[in-house]
Lab assay of single mutants.
Amino acid sequence: TTIHVGDLTLKYDNPKKAYEIAKKLAKKYNLTVTIKNGKITVT
């Protein structure tokens, strides 16, 4: 599972963990989490 945050690309083997991290990042920086085709993007 890949999380895209701006220019950063973070890879995680565990999709659930990746989603949790994405949610935390989104909350911290007041951003939105988008999931599309298995890719998690924080914008």
Score class of each variant (00 low, 15 high):
41 T>V: 12
30 N>Q: 09
13 D>I: 05
37 N>Q: 11
24 K>W: 15
5 V>I: 15
19 Y>D: 04
27 K>L: 11
33 V>N: 00
15 P>K: 08
42 V>T: 01
35 I>V: 13
24 K>E: 09
33 V>T: 02
12 Y>H: 03
24 K>I: 12
4 H>L: 13
17 K>T: 13
39 K>V: 15
23 K>S: 11
3 I>N: 02
43 T>E: 12
11 K>V: 15
7 D>Q: 12
2 T>V: 12
33 V>P: 00
12 Y>S: 05
30 N>A: 07
24 K>C: 11
17 K>Q: 14
13 D>P: 10
22 A>T: 03
35 I>G: 02
35 I>A: 04
11 K>L: 14
32 T>F: 08
1 T>W: 14
10 L>Q: 03
11 K>T: 15
29 Y>H: 09
35 I>S: 06
14 N>D: 15
20 E>P: 01
26 A>W: 02
26 A>E: 05
15 P>W: 15
6 G>R: 02
36 K>E: 14
34 T>S: 12
39 K>P: 01
28 K>Y: 11
32 T>M: 11
23 K>Q: 13
37 N>L: 10
20 E>W: 12
34 T>L: 11
6 G>E: 03
14 N>W: 08
9 T>I: 15
43 T>S: 14
2 T>A: 07
30 N>V: 03
27 K>V: 09
18 A>C: 06
28 K>P: 00
40 I>Y: 04
3 I>P: 01
17 K>C: 08
29 Y>L: 05
27 K>R: 11
36 K>S: 14
1 T>K: 06
19 Y>A: 08
8 L>F: 11
14 N>S: 14
43 T>N: 09
31 L>R: 00
5 V>K: 03
34 T>N: 09
7 D>S: 13
8 L>V: 10
38 G>L: 04
17 K>H: 10
8 L>P: 02
1 T>I: 14
43 T>G: 13
32 T>V: 13
20 E>F: 10
36 K>P: 01
1 T>Q: 06
1 T>G: 09
3 I>Y: 00
25 L>E: 00
11 K>W: 15
23 K>E: 12
25 L>K: 01
14 N>E: 07
24 K>T: 08
19 Y>T: 05
38 G>Q: 07
31 L>Q: 01
30 N>Y: 05
12 Y>R: 00
2 T>W: 05
29 Y>F: 11
22 A>D: 00
10 L>S: 01
29 Y>S: 03
13 D>W: 09
40 I>E: 01
42 V>W: 02
12 Y>K: 01
26 A>N: 02
22 A>H: 00
21 I>L: 09
31 L>Y: 03
22 A>F: 06
24 K>H: 12
26 A>Q: 04
25 L>Q: 01
43 T>Q: 12
21 I>C: 10
34 T>Y: 08
22 A>R: 00
8 L>W: 09
35 I>Y: 07
39 K>Y: 14
7 D>G: 13
3 I>S: 02
8 L>C: 15
36 K>N: 13
31 L>K: 01
22 A>L: 08
16 K>P: 03
21 I>E: 08
12 Y>I: 10
23 K>R: 12
4 H>N: 09
34 T>E: 10
30 N>P: 01
15 P>T: 11
13 D>V: 04
29 Y>E: 02
6 G>L: 11
4 H>P: 01
32 T>P: 02
32 T>N: 10
4 H>T: 15
31 L>V: 04
40 I>C: 02
23 K>Y: 12
12 Y>D: 03
13 D>T: 06
36 K>W: 05
11 K>Y: 15
28 K>M: 12
22 A>V: 06
25 L>N: 00
37 N>V: 09
37 N>C: 07
14 N>P: 04
27 K>S: 09
